[in-house]
């Protein structure tokens, strides 16, 4: 039985609030000892790359670069959708600490094993 919590994030720089909010929730989970993952799809895959969080700051929310680092320090993982990363030219060389490129099967396996998913529209 998987006890992972998977928070889906689909936005990048173009939507700072939407890009940040999943990390806020996921960081709470990680900080409280949960096995937390932010699953980045579509434009959010940039967030797991070098410089990908630069300049993303929504008033009232933490600066995403700082939040990202804190989340990873708390044991959180960032999964980047492989199908979204490939057409954007994102490879393993571009990744920052804590992020991994994964495919759909990896996510499906966790969900089948009981992982909970949280979506942010």
């Amino acid at each position: 039985m998987s006890d992972k919590l998977i928070f889906n994030c689909t936005y990048g720089k173009e939507e700072p609030e939407r890009a940040t909010l999943p990390f806020v929730a996921a960081n709470i989970a990680a900080a409280t000892g949960q096995d937390a993952i932010v699953l980045c799809t579509i434009e959010a895959v940039w967030l797991g790359t070098q410089g990908g969080t630069d300049g993303i700051a929504q008033p009232g929310l933490p600066v995403l670069a700082d939040l990202y680092a804190e989340f990873v320090d708390n044991g959180g993982q960032v999964w980047l959708c492989g199908a979204c990363a490939k057409p954007r030219g994102i490879t393993e060389e571009h990744l920052v600490k804590g992020s991994t490129i994964v495919g759909a099967a990896k996510v499906v396996e966790e969900v089948v094993a009981g992982a909970m998913t949280v979506a942010f529209a």
Binding site: C81, G82, A83, A85, K86, T91, E92, T100, I101, V102, G103, A104, A105, K106, V108, E109, V112
Partner: peptide
């Protein structure tokens, strides 16, 4: 050599 497949194939095989 696909970065996603490296994470995906073991899951796929088990599934």
């Amino acid at each position: 050599s696909d970065p996603a497949a490296k994470e995906d194939l073991p899951s796929m095989a088990r599934l």
